[in-house]
């Protein structure tokens, strides 16, 4: 299928700020393909982001875009979605933005099950500020603020989303672009709060500190560690050691927040 990238890219805004080899561009193309597949209307689609490299994505896409403060995308978006329930609201950002400074807003957006889709690009690091460790940086790995290796345990972002009540949780990688398209499309179609964690790479601030010789090596690692959920069912715990599940990890139907609030309005207006 031919996709209309030009339709969705804002004229004059490319080239983007991302480093050569960064996976964010792959994610952005996936998002555009999903928008194109779903024939979304630009005026009725909003992308809301926080701060960081991944949060610069909305500036390149031609729709209603809101680049907010660090970690706060989910909270800004919640207000927008309540004011405009008919809009498609997409959140995007990185692992540090979403799970450290924005962790509280993230889990509560999951809990409310408000109809939005959160694209979280997990490159294991704070890239824009030069490579400090994030809640997603694996234990023992190097960052500019863990020169002796990271002592912190890391979050499993998808599990965090499931635990917090998100009703659609998927994981993909920047290597598996075709799978990513399907996951994003399904996430946007899902009624409720959907999360797509995308394992990504940051060659500049993470790769070079953790003995990745090239972007290709980082991409190959994403390929090697990924196991689709279906395939994992047939694998032993030993075989799954060090692997990461990809695909739709969780899905359920639950009352959506804006619809629930519409019922509050109905109850308040009874007998009025």
């Amino acid at each position: 299928m031919a996709y209309d990238y030009d339709k969705w890219i804002r004229p004059g805004k490319l080239p983007h700020i991302w480093c050569p080899g960064c996976g964010h561009g792959i994610v952005m193309k996936g998002l555009i393909r999903a928008f194109d597949t779903l024939q979304l209307k630009k005026e009725e689609t909003a992308i809301v982001s926080g701060i960081g490299c991944a949060s610069r994505l909305p500036g390149y896409i031609d729709c209603c875009t809101l680049h907010t403060t660090h970690g706060r995308a989910a909270a800004f978006a919640t207000g927008l979605k309540m004011a405009r329930p008919e809009m498609k609201v997409i959140l995007c950002g990185g692992d540090g933005d979403g799970t450290a400074i924005g962790g509280n807003h993230f889990i509560h957006a999951c809990r409310r099950n408000i109809d939005m889709t959160y694209i979280i690009m997990n490159n294991y690091i704070y890239g824009m500020t030069g490579g400090q460790f994030s809640p997603a940086t694996p234990t023992g790995h190097k960052a500019s603020t863990t020169p002796y290796g990271n002592p912190d345990p890391n979050f499993d972002i998808a599990k965090l989303a499931i635990g917090a009540g998100a009703t659609f949780v998927a994981r993909g990688t920047a290597f598996h672009a075709a799978q990513l398209d399907k996951l994003i499309v399904e996430a946007i179609q899902h009624k409720g709060f959907s999360v797509v964690e995308i394992l990504d790479d940051c060659p500049t601030t993470y790769g070079r500190r953790n003995k990745f010789k090239s972007v290709i090596e980082m991409m190959n690692r994403l390929k090697e560690i990924s196991v689709p959920v279906k395939a994992a069912e047939k694998m032993t715990p030993e075989q799954l050691q060090g692997k990461v599940l990809t695909g739709v990890l969780y899905k359920e139907e639950k009352p959506e927040y804006c619809e629930q609030y519409a019922k509050v309005i109905e109850r308040a207006q009874v007998g009025k």
């Binding site: 907010t68 403060t69 909270a75 919640t78 207000g79 927008l80 405009r84 807003h105 509560h108």
Partner: peptide
């Protein structure tokens, strides 16, 4: 909202929604 910061953020989001 979940906290004061989030309340202020939601406020701005809603205002931009009109």
């Amino acid at each position: 909202m979940e906290d004061e910061i989030g309340a202020m953020a939601a406020l701005i989001g809603a205002s931009l929604g009109g």
